[in-house]
């Protein structure tokens, strides 16, 4: 695959799958305000994914639009990082949680939105004017996501014994997957290599975790490879309900 197309898809798919996971909270969040917040952030990310997938379709030059890329690609063609496809809870849905853990969602969203903020800041300087425009627009949105999810991370980490324990458990679970945030290669003139974000991200993350009273786990050598198309068992289960309508009724449109 063309390196530039690959780069755009890695970001587009990460936004799309993250939006799907946030969207699963619609109607289920702990309070109404958070229900709206999670849905709003999911919508922003979905909008960003749409713009990026449209650009990817143009780069590919095969006549595929955003919908065909989102709904008709196979699991292995997806380039999102594994972190975003993990379910919203570590435990099984049968434990009464409905398969959703607000601590895990909050922590992942804080990590992702900080990462997106750093990435979009740099992408604004892309020589590709379309990509630069998408980045400038999206940056405004993810700053609100980062602020909101960071506030919650501190509130829960520095909260009750129960909320702290759940945040610490979420951090332990997600920690190895954060490695993939710095894995994808850059493309000259298009965007930075993700490893260029690592020093900034780790410094700001450490500050946030300290404020939240959470301790960082030991470094992990795990290298997830969703950005190369190698996914966990969870992505297929996410794509099946997301894609079934378009596959059952090919070409169906609003």
């Amino acid at each position: 695959m063309d390196a530039k197309l690959n780069y755009v898809l890695q970001l587009a798919d990460t936004c799309l799958i993250h939006a799907q996971r946030l969207g699963e909270w619609c109607g289920h969040a702990p309070v109404l305000e958070e229900d709206l917040a999670l849905s709003n952030m999911a919508l922003d990310l979905l909008g960003q994914a749409r713009a990026l997938l449209t650009l990817a379709g143009a780069l590919e030059g095969a006549g595929r639009d955003e919908d065909q890329l989102a709904f008709l690609r196979e699991e292995r063609d997806y380039r999102n990082i594994v972190l975003v496809e993990l379910p919203n809870a570590a435990a099984s849905p049968s434990d009464g949680s409905g398969g959703r853990d607000f601590a895990l969602t909050t922590l992942r969203n804080a990590a992702l939105s900080l990462w997106l903020e750093l990435l979009y800041e740099r992408l604004q300087a892309s020589a590709d004017t379309e990509l630069a425009g998408i980045a400038a627009k999206s940056l405004k949105e993810v700053r609100y996501h980062r602020q909101h999810s960071s506030d919650w991370a501190v509130r829960l980490g520095d909260g009750t014994a129960e909320s702290k324990a759940r945040m610490q458990a979420a951090l332990a679970l997600l920690w190895p997957y954060f490695n993939e945030l710095f894995a994808a290669a850059g493309v000259d003139g298009t965007g930075p290599a993700w490893r260029e974000l690592e020093a900034d991200w780790r410094a700001r993350w450490a500050t946030l975790m300290q404020e939240a009273g959470l301790s960082l786990p030991r470094d992990s050598a795990m290298q997830p490879q969703g950005h190369l198309g190698v996914h966990s068992e969870h992505l297929g289960h996410l794509l099946a309900p997301m894609q079934y309508l378009q596959r059952a009724y090919p070409g169906g449109a609003w």
Binding site: E33, L36, A37, L43, D44, Q147
Partner: peptide, 13 residues
């Protein structure tokens, strides 16, 4: 402020 997000993305509650 009750929430940084409202009935639409552009508003807070």
């Amino acid at each position: 402020q009750l929430s940084r997000f409202g009935s639409t993305a552009c508003k807070s509650t």
